[in-house]
Amino acid sequence: MPTTSPLTFQVTIDCADPHGLADWWAEALGWAVEPSDEAFIRSMVAAGHAQESDTTTHRGTLVWAEGAALVPPEGMPRVLFMRVPEPKTAKNRLHLDLRAGEADRPAHLERLLAAGATETGRGSQGPHAWVVLTDPEGNEFCLA
């Protein structure tokens, strides 16, 4: 059997507003939104590989309309936000667990709630406790 390199992955979150949600999660995680390569976007449109309707302007910058991503710290997966036409209708089958030290958890919870997260529950198992939250589009995540 041939030797292959290990697979890598990114986490993709379906949403209605990829750029707004990427901004929210960048703030929540303390990461950055990937910068847009406006020259590349313009060249793709000029060459006929994309349409003007594939683009939009977000915070004064030309961006791809369908998605936005975060720049992860070294060793972390990229997080991509993709526009989908349908609204969220059920609980996520996959969610992010944000980890904070026990002493820092209350401050992170307060910051996330002030930024627009909604607390939907709390859980614990043995010595481990977490808070279940949703982002502004209703995607569940936990703060542990």
Results as ranks from 00 to 15, higher is better:
A47S: 15
L29K: 07
F81V: 07
R59Q: 12
A69I: 03
W130C: 07
L62E: 01
L98Q: 04
G138D: 03
A103Q: 10
T12W: 04
H95I: 02
D104Q: 14
V11Q: 05
E110G: 10
Q10P: 08
A103Y: 00
L113G: 09
T4Q: 13
H128T: 15
V33Y: 00
V33S: 02
A68H: 05
T8Y: 05
G60T: 08
H19W: 03
F9W: 08
A103I: 12
R111T: 12
T55G: 07
R42C: 05
E110Y: 07
H108D: 12
R93D: 06
D54N: 12
W130N: 06
H108F: 14
P73S: 09
D104K: 13
S53P: 04
G75T: 06
R42K: 13
G121W: 04
H128A: 15
W24G: 07
F9Y: 13
E52M: 13
A47N: 11
E137C: 10
R99E: 11
T134L: 05
V33A: 08
P73Q: 06
T118A: 13
L109E: 09
M1D: 12
P18R: 04
N92R: 13
V11I: 15
A26D: 03
T3V: 15
A103E: 09
R42H: 09
E86R: 14
A129W: 03
P106V: 09
P87H: 01
L96G: 00
M1T: 14
T4A: 14
R78S: 07
T118R: 15
E74I: 14
A100E: 07
M76Y: 11
